[in-house]
Design a protein around this nucleic acid. Structure first.
Lengths: 159, 159
DNA sequence: TGTCAAATGATAATGATTATCAAATTAAAA
DNA sequence: TTTTAATTTGATAATCATTATCATTTGACA
């Protein structure tokens, strides 16, 4: 984790951004909550515990900057609130989401399931893909009537 | 088109909703602009031409109602504005979107490319899928340097 | 240490959307 | 045709997530 923070710092530095304690505290919170889909407000409340002087506007700005630098991914589930996820290092693909209509839980699929689909899109639609977003809405395994042991995958994170 | 309007009316009727001229004008506008991704404001401006007394709040309410009835799909591209698409009749799948980062155009893929992916998700993650959203961000064929004749597909709609 | 441009925090502003409420309207019953 | 009850409307206030503003502070470099 400290190494990840150092690497992010170097990234900021190499692009002439300043390394402020506010930015560090924000990154730290994101790292500690990698499995959660935090809103800006969530992040603000958590960062405030580490750095009480921080302002909400600064959190927004920091998240926006990290998003531009592709350290963070910003995602919308259509509920009026943006969510921010630290991007997995080396991840060349934005993970997919499973949103449960029953309990509201958000699970992630780290594996990129869109390889074949993207090939089709690039060749048939001549569209040069740079990013994708895939979200499934449905009923998660916890809300199913039946229990199905053995279906849990390590790349699924409960959020 | 008139037939589609009649069918939507019957759908509203069968669920004890009233058939108001405002609702009809809204549906009419959505039908006339099936290829566009209209914001609520867009819809409002267009409906006002047909029915000048209409209020913005009513447009929002109507769009919301039609969304709940699955006549309309509401989509977010993460830019702070919701878009509303009339659902293709009989469509059991929400079309995919290609958003060009250069020119901002939004193309659609009507074909469901997620069949195989959904099978994987349902079985490996034990997630009962009810709906999906797939958006690609990238560079569209118009903004490419090269021209590639023959790649245009009939199910791609320029929006 | 001094300089300077970036970054900050508090707060006002913005814009998309929803809540409120009196009035209007639709649809069904009489 | 009229009445009635419930829904729907339009104007406008309210809400909320987010961004703009501006004086002050701060980080990095010389």
């Amino acid at each position: 984790m400290e190494q990840r923070i150092d690497r992010i710092k170097k990234q900021l530095q190499s692009q002439s951004y300043k390394l402020t304690p506010q930015r560090e505290a924000t990154v730290r919170v994101l790292l500690e909550h990698e499995d959660d889909h935090l809103s800006a407000e969530d992040v603000y409340m958590l960062v405030k515990e580490k750095y009480p002087e921080i302002g909400l506007a600064t959190v927004y700005r920091t998240l926006e900057l990290l998003t531009e630098l592709k350290v963070v991914d910003k995602i919308n589930f259509g509920d009026g609130v943006s969510r921010y996820d630290l991007r997995q290092e080396g991840a060349d693909h934005f993970h997919h989401h499973l949103v449960c209509l029953e309990c509201g839980a958000v699970d992630e699929i780290q594996e990129d399931l869109l390889g074949d689909v993207e090939k089709i899109v690039e060749t048939r639609w001549n569209f040069h893909i740079k990013d994708h977003r895939l979200t499934f809405h449905g009923i998660c395994h916890r809300c199913h009537d039946t229990s199905s042991p053995g279906h849990e995958k390590s790349e699924v994170h409960q959020k």
